[in-house]
């Protein structure tokens, strides 16, 4: 989530920046991330990146995938929030001797952050639900290991039972956490 917030803000700033190159890069990023399924992105990070020599453990891979994906959505929240702050606020700050950067940082962003709080909260809940997707990585990982052990020991039943138990161990608490969080969220919304 922290990754998504920071990256989302950076992408939003790039999208409203004066530099045409930065704007285009950010736009492509947002469109690609929003245009492809999260599952595909996760699988890509975990299974395709190693093929070109980048190895990532399952947990960082899940965090990275979710963070990159949600950054794209959050950047749109930030962008519209920044644009919703009236030009007069910036002009007042400039006339008082703020540099453009300081006016953005000290005057505009704090106001747009308040505006974004609601949508950010909603995305946060959605993100927690999507953590279940990351278990795809974990499950495949378990199966892969099970295959290896099976090939060595031929204790087929025990190995796959252990794998199934492991999967339950991961997925049960996760779905519990998710539904608990959902319940709490519903109280607040």
């Amino acid at each position: 989530m922290a990754l998504a917030l920071v990256l989302g803000l950076l992408v939003a700033l790039a999208r409203i920046s004066k530099s045409r190159i930065l704007r285009s890069i950010a736009l492509v990023y947002v469109e690609v991330m929003r245009g492809t399924p999260l599952l595909v992105q996760l699988v890509y990070i975990f299974f395709v990146l190693p093929a070109i020599g980048v190895n990532i453990d399952p947990v960082p891979a899940g965090i990275l995938g979710l963070g990159l994906n949600y950054a794209a959505y959050l950047s749109e929240v930030f962008r519209s929030a920044i644009l919703s702050v009236e030009a007069g606020q910036t002009e007042a700050a400039l006339s008082l001797g703020y540099t453009p950067g300081k006016a953005l940082w000290r005057i505009v962003l704090p106001q747009s952050f308040i505006v974004s709080l609601g949508p950010i909260g909603n995305y946060f809940i959605a993100m927690v639900k999507d953590t279940a997707l990351t278990s795809v990585i974990a499950v495949t990982e378990i199966l892969k290991t099970a295959n290896v052990i099976n090939a060595q020991t031929f204790e087929t039943t025990q190995v796959y039972t252990a794998a199934a138990l492991l999967y339950l161990l991961i997925s049960l608490p996760l779905s519990r956490i998710v539904s608990a969080l959902e319940k709490r969220a519903r109280v607040h919304v």
Partner: peptide
Amino acid sequence: VFQQFNLFLN
């Protein structure tokens, strides 16, 4: 000083 005041709203 602006016509629309432009006070920092927060």
